[in-house]
Design a binder for these strands. Sequence first.
DNA 1: ACCTCGACCTGGGCGC
DNA 2: TGCGCCCAGGTCGAGG
Length: 290
Amino acid sequence: MPELPEVETVRLSLLPYLPGKTIQSVVIRDPHVIQEPNFERYPELLGGQSITSLERIGKQLIFVLEESYLLIHLGMTGQLTYRDPNRQDTKFHRHHKTGLQRTLQHPVDKHTHISLEFPDSTALHYRDIRKFGKWRLVDRSTNVSQHLKLGVDPLTSGFDPEFLWKGLKKSKRPVKARLLDQSFIAGLGNIYVDEALFDSGIRPGRGSHRITRKESLALAGSILKVLRLGLKNGGTTLQDFQDGEGQSGYNQECLLVYGRYGEPCPRCKKNLRRSEVGGRTSSWCAICQK
DNA sequence: ACCTCGACCTGGGCGC
DNA sequence: TGCGCCCAGGTCGAGG
């Protein structure tokens, strides 16, 4: 689920609430997603620290604490929601599948594995159905990009057509697989890669090293275009995604090719093809993408 | 050094 | 209604 626009949507939605809050207690119901250090030390290490700011590199969320970085990756189904018990439930806005209210009232259920509790009785809940998410706690001296082997975030100044072209030249794998490599570009996933490749007219199976300089220029623009659109639409909600307040995104309504194989191409009307590229299901147009 | 593949999980949708 | 199969936004590590 969560690619760069979804993770950024979560970050932005939590920004009004978390910075300045002090972590009073940590409730761990299922330590499955906690990587390092051992989860038993979390209450001791996190308790009493306050949250300075919230940052993001690619799909990685970074809680900047006084003495640590709390690194949270949402995996496929991770959700972070802020609960304020003083806010009213809004019964008319329940998620059609999960039943979760679209307010600040994310109730603890069997998938809510970790909660950070604050002195004002509000809390940050981590819910993750498939448990592919990961929590890590590292020292503030850590270089997060280096530590997690993350490449360039496309929404930063390090990302430009020249960087893209040079990076694409280095691999003979399919261009789609290269774009999904988080140590090259941090933040793209299956949805936005398919969308960007369609927008720039490039087949996902083309050899990465065979993408021309001119195509890289178009592709760089398309990547930014689809990511910004996703962000503007509050992320793509296929099943589970919601922001920190429980709101679904609506970018799924703007996807042109992802998951639409068999349907007519929005540009030429010939049916979109489906194939497996880099181990991921891909949707593309044999006419519009070369 | 590179790449492909399966594993890690749970749940939804579909065909029978 | 129920079972079994396939599929899903993402990494990771083992092995070729």
